[in-house]
């Protein structure tokens, strides 16, 4: 399987472990937040000890890194808290060091953590995708979605990574004090979040405090939502984030998935029909809110897959 549903998980209750894999040197410690048991892709909170040093090199995996606390250097440049890096696979980064130590969120997206010492890019590296930005400075907060249905006022974000092919995103987000939203949400994508500071509440899982984390596969209910004193968090999705809102607390992931397909049929009928009717192997998804609404008419005779 890929990554299981890890929600909620509070890393502050855990101890750091030494990362002793070859290539990373001494002074790197981690807490595993979530882990893909097939590929080794993972999200970790990492502590680099004072004086940590690593030579120039690359990873075979795409790497994302968010600097939570302290400072670190790549080459001659020192980076501060809130700095975000997207490092494509095979792109060689300059020597890395942290004189006073630091803590980061470190994400290996394609494989287990690995490091190859070299100052030359891999032949397959795409250096044009290398990106870094300080998310705390010089970026405006924005409303999370233009197209409805949208989150309530008081949820704002800064997009740090956007994949134009998959629409996957990495972002910083805040919930304002006294934020609330009375609906239940799920998405067609996996969603991940780490609370940098603050506590928020969801009806299924209770309070998620500072250091709280989740990796949530698609179609899993979350919400209603509330946040008393404000929260700042780092989040990611693995494809397009579309809000499916409803008020059935007991629907399960399979029913939510069916409902998504049914809603796509109504929201984007042309593309739905094109996809669904190729080879006449089309599904007839059920929407638990509209169980009798078949969605379209046709003139052929076949089994709609409903339970008899």
């Amino acid at each position: 399987m890929a990554r299981p549903h890890i929600e909620p998980f509070v890393e502050r209750n855990e101890d750091f472990k030494k990362l002793s894999m070859s290539g990373f040197g001494k002074g790197m410690h981690y807490k595993m937040l979530s882990f893909d048991t097939d590929t080794g892709a993972c999200t970790m909170k990492v502590r680099f000890d004072s004086g940590y040093k690593r030579p120039p090199g690359f990873s075979y995996s795409e790497v994302e890194m968010f600097l939570l606390k302290g400072t670190l250097k790549y080459g001659d440049t020192t980076y501060q808290e809130g700095h975000y890096f997207l490092i494509p696979p095979g792109v060689s980064m300059p020597a890395m060091s942290s004189s006073r130590g630091c803590e980061v969120l470190l994400m290996y997206n394609g494989s287990e953590p690995n490091f190859v010492e070299t100052d030359v890019d891999h032949d397959y590296a795409d250096r044009s995708r290398l990106a870094e930005v300080n998310s705390y400075q010089g970026m405006p907060w924005m409303a999370p979605a233009v197209n409805p249905p949208r989150t309530a006022t008081g949820c704002l974000l800064k997009i740090l990574k956007y994949d134009e092919r998959t629409h996957a995103m990495s972002f910083l987000y805040i919930l304002s004090p006294e934020f609330w939203q009375d609906n239940i949400s799920y998405h067609d994508c996996a969603e991940e979040s780490y609370h940098i500071w603050g506590s928020s509440w969801m009806m299924q899982f209770g309070d998620l405090p500072t250091g709280g984390y989740f990796w949530r596969p698609p179609y899993i209910n979350h919400g209603a939502f509330a946040c008393k004193r404000g929260t700042i968090a780092f989040g990611r999705t693995d494809s397009e984030l579309f809000n499916h809102f409803h008020f059935n607390p007991w629907s399960n992931a399979k029913e939510n998935e069916e409902r998504s397909a049914s809603r796509l049929m109504h929201r984007n009928p042309e593309i739905y029909n094109w996809i669904a009717q190729r080879g006449h192997n089309h599904p007839h998804p059920q929407d638990f809110e509209y169980p009798d609404d078949h969605g379209h008419s046709h003139d052929h005779d076949h089994d709609h897959g409903k339970k008899k």
Partner: peptide, 14 residues
Amino acid sequence: MDNLGIPHVRNADA
């Protein structure tokens, strides 16, 4: 190759 990684041989350590 996709955007996420370059094929490689995973060593015993990993």
